[in-house]
Design a protein around this nucleic acid. Structure first.
Lengths: 253, 253
DNA sequence: ACAAAAGTGTTTGAGGTACACCCATGG
DNA sequence: CCATGGGTGTACCTCAAACACTTTTGT
């Protein structure tokens, strides 16, 4: 432990960055958590994250901590919300013993679970995926953060093509639908306290997706159990063209 | 100037809270700005805001600074985004001369311009409303913050009843439409670089609003120039009932 | 042959969009 | 009487929602 210290004329908060990383595993929506290896909340599960350095943005800090703690790197983060409640973190300064004011800037991400191998590192005793419907006890206010992320995910998935970030380049219509059903089902359970969830209609779902024009069929087929199905792909170029055209999409064609 | 100092084992950023306060003045969408009375950017226009204290949340700090600088108080703020770019604020610590890392948590609000009298106070040499279409040069990255707020406003106004916060309890359908047109027009100019904007169709707008069921006609009439019109009001109870029912609103009834 | 998954179409109702003429008030 | 703003209806089209039988593959 060195004895450097930092001096300021006015009190400053500590600022962390935390990541809510979503992925789909077969049927369920999962979140990446770490088991804390340090006080406070040592041994508890928590979102990956940590203190932001002075030479990096919040997003860079979030990515660095995520890589250090879970091995997951190079992913696209979206800023979610900044949590500033007083007392949300019990830490005190190591030199002065003065209670720290710790704010956290929360980010969310959507990745393909199979593309990354999760390895605990650094401040994490363990790192693994947990189904959103069955989370362990969490450190700090991380449950609240996850709930907000879920709400945002449910909104976003209806207006933005984020489902494709959870899938391979080529996917079947059923795989795409599994994403939507998993998100809606998890939200129904976790946010709305609903007890059951009825999946979307397969035919209407396909019609809807194809009507968007940026989900396009390719001339390949899936294989595995059951009848092979067409594969589809996300046409990012087409989506961007539509984005430019559709700056205004209610009340106006 | 006292000589208190605060000591931390690790470097800490300074964190401010800034407010993007929107209001409608007749026809135009306005933002509340202050003229800075302190370095840096002394004399430049900026968003009201300032450093968050250790005993208040970001939102409390934003409200306090807003009141101190503009006299506007007791309004509802929504968190927008936290800006953490390195070098976005040129200040240095007053004791050590070390460059500060200043992050800002930006909030947005929608108020009735006539309900508040704007009075410059404190760190502000002046405080006044500016039309969004014609903003002055701004300090820091405040133009970027405003652009993000505008984008969010355009999205929100289509899905959430925030227009009513810009109006009196009782309003004519035309007054309500003015809000939407002002927002869309300002966004068309500022965000999309469009040169013209065609207002919404009066009849379709009314049909749409009434179909929402929470805009209800009351048995009173406006007066002034031209034919008197029905007054309407926002039925908050009805809106909340709908919110509870409509947790899922795409793909499902 | 059986289980598992995929391909496929129609009907109905709701709501978005375009569009124009007459009416009530104040000055 | 005129300027200003408000009241009002219809036709068309798109899209969401409900709904079931057949086909292909692997085992």
């Amino acid at each position: 432990m060195n004895d450097l210290a930092y001096i300021y004329k006015y009190p400053h908060p500590a600022v962390t960055a935390d990541c809510v990383v979503f992925a789909i595993d077969g049927k369920a929506l999962n979140i990446l958590l770490i088991k804390r290896n340090l006080e406070p909340y040592m041994g508890a599960w928590a979102l990956p994250g940590g203190f932001i350095r002075m030479d990096e943005t919040a997003e860079e800090g979030a990515l660095r901590e995520l890589k250090e703690e879970t091995g997951v790197e190079d992913i696209y983060l979206e800023q979610l919300h900044t949590f500033t409640a007083i007392g949300r973190d019990p830490r005190v300064d190591e030199i002065t013993g003065v209670p720290e004011r710790v704010m956290t800037i929360a980010f969310m991400a959507f990745i393909r679970q199979d593309d990354y191998s999760v390895v605990a590192g650094d401040d994490a005793a363990n790192a693994q995926w947990f189904p959103v419907n069955n989370l362990p006890e969490l450190a700090f206010d991380h449950r609240e953060i996850i709930h907000m992320a879920l709400g945002q995910l449910r909104n976003k998935i209806m207006y933005e093509p984020i489902a494709f970030r959870l899938l391979n380049k080529k996917f079947t219509m059923t795989q795409l639908q599994v994403i939507y059903d998993a998100v809606f089902e998890s939200c129904a359970y976790v946010l709305d306290n609903k007890k059951e969830y009825k999946p979307l209609d397969r035919r209407n779902f396909q019609k809807k997706m194809l009507s968007l024009k940026y989900v396009v069929q390719i001339n390949e087929f899936s294989k595995g159990v059951g009848r092979p199905g067409y594969l589809f792909t996300f046409d990012e170029k087409e989506y961007k063209i539509q984005l430019d055209e559709k700056k205004m999409f209610v009340f106006r064609k």
